[in-house]
Design a protein around this nucleic acid. Sequence first.
DNA 1: AAAATCACCGAAAGCGGTTTCGTCGAACAC
DNA 2: GTGTTCGACGAAACCGCTTTCGGTGATTTT
Lengths: 341, 341
Amino acid sequence: MSVNIKTIAKMAGVSVSTVSKIMNNYSDISEDTRTKVLEIMKQTGYVPSNSAKTLATKKSNLIGVIFAGKLNIDFTHPFFIEVLNSFKKQMGFLGYDLLFFSNEKSHALDGDYLARCRHFNVDGCIIVTGQQVEPSISELDYSEIPCIGVDIELKGRSSGYIMSDNYKMSYKVVEHFYLQGYRELGYIGSTLESDISNTREKGYKDAIESFGLAVNENWFINGDNFFEESGYEAINKMIAADRMPQAVFAASDLLAIGAMRALKEHQLRVPQDVAIIGCDDIEACKYTTPALSTIRQNKDKIGRLAASLLFDLINTQSETSNVVVEPELVIRESCGSRLKE
Amino acid sequence: MSVNIKTIAKMAGVSVSTVSKIMNNYSDISEDTRTKVLEIMKQTGYVPSNSAKTLATKKSNLIGVIFAGKLNIDFTHPFFIEVLNSFKKQMGFLGYDLLFFSNEKSHALDGDYLARCRHFNVDGCIIVTGQQVEPSISELDYSEIPCIGVDIELKGRSSGYIMSDNYKMSYKVVEHFYLQGYRELGYIGSTLESDISNTREKGYKDAIESFGLAVNENWFINGDNFFEESGYEAINKMIAADRMPQAVFAASDLLAIGAMRALKEHQLRVPQDVAIIGCDDIEACKYTTPALSTIRQNKDKIGRLAASLLFDLINTQSETSNVVVEPELVIRESCGSRLKE
DNA sequence: AAAATCACCGAAAGCGGTTTCGTCGAACAC
DNA sequence: GTGTTCGACGAAACCGCTTTCGGTGATTTT
């Protein structure tokens, strides 16, 4: 039988209310009793029950974490996990803990995210995804529960979102390619269901035209997802359809890595025959040969800002605010200058 | 005002007890009322409160996740995150959700893991770590709360652990090196605080001797941690102290990657000049040049088994059981045969 | 027909906190 | 000396759900 608030009250010779007030910093408690009770708490190692507190206050100090989308996004996703890592740090700093909803089919509340949020009484939640999502997410988005989306535009009154400037990053890539002398530019993205990829593709095409170049649709391939295998297949399709462009931008580093593997098999050198730029700047970029140039998404900042935004949504009636984060071009070896040959 | 059990009861014209019994599959409810109540639940989108349930039953269906140790182990750790991923899947399948304790200094219960477990009433918890840990972990280990350790030997009556066979993996490495014709073997590990590394080092030395070779202490370097930078520094130290061995086993893939970077800078080729084998088989192994041979830890199995063991600890009075998982040598390019030259 | 059994349901006491509101004695004003 | 304010505390209702135990009417037993 663990020690609870009643035990403390009895030991201190005060009422339960008094103990509770002390824990919640009420002012109508004398300094004497306060210190006495606190002392007893310390001695007994008393820990208040979060369930009881949540039940009484409707606040759980818990943040729900949702990996949304039909794709298999989970802990192993190199981009999102880094964002989450930073998010967790900042959220912990603000006094919250993270609750990861399982989404196994066997689960009673499977798929119904709003229900799960209510079930656990989370104070807010973060939704990470790389694609358009199931209706159950919209339901949550438009509910009263504060939500912050990463790479997904939440529109609810108590929601906000944060993402990199996907349009601008494409411009930066095209600009770089152009300045290096490349004129034939290709793109590897993911399914049409992905807003992210769509925006990048749009930005890429617009940029190409703004530099007075032509868009060749054969050099635009959208695979099924953002993983390596899709990048591998994309290159094969590209080669089958036409000759290769001089440079290609892949909408994720994993796509780029898969692309490089395919190019290697076709005896094409990176960057001499085809220059490659990836996107995200995951750890693995440094370990590939050639090292992968990429658009760095400031994952640390995204996670931290997501936490701050969510905190505001929870604790103030602040207008929902969305932020786009400036991406950065990281030049390594895979996009080397054409002129150097 | 959200719908609760009382609302349902009123709407269905039954008592609160009846509704509760229906949710908990009591048998003394007629089929008629059962279906009627269930129907109303569905219509109203009723979701029971986990806090209330936890308060009443002392079971939360929550599993606490603890990254222990002074090292900065977190979501970005390539080995543990994969284990956790598999753990989460299996735990979700069993009906549990995961609660990640923040361990920021600002947090009220910072550092006191047992307190946090009690605070949230977790049914059990998983402790992942790569090293010996703070006393607060022991406290939790020996408490009444079921715990499962990954890479840490928990000894409490309600605890268990799971890890790869760290002794045997070293034997496999030495055996491979020996069969390839290497006779001068080195090792890169982590601080003396790490049981894991100690076991691997011991196994490595024992294996070396069992093959009739000599142990050269200059070729055994223990860095500060398991990260890349330590591997890099280890090689530099090794080179400074003596000439290089023909082959080295690094106690983590990141150490190995760092080692390869250092070797490259010293104009030493892998594997022609120095053969390397890493440990863990993280994603990045495939992307390095040369691709990194490694000891694969079956992360999927470890995570799944951890879940099963924990489930048993929670739901039965089963004897605490510990399991070691068989490691597997994965041969890529970095340990290539010496004989082939 | 009386007794025993059975199916079905509800009252009520928790679980461990929070919060409102009232009380009571001491200090203050007049 | 009476009325008022104020500081310090407690009683009690409540949060939403579980679970025991008892009750009631219908059915079965003998």
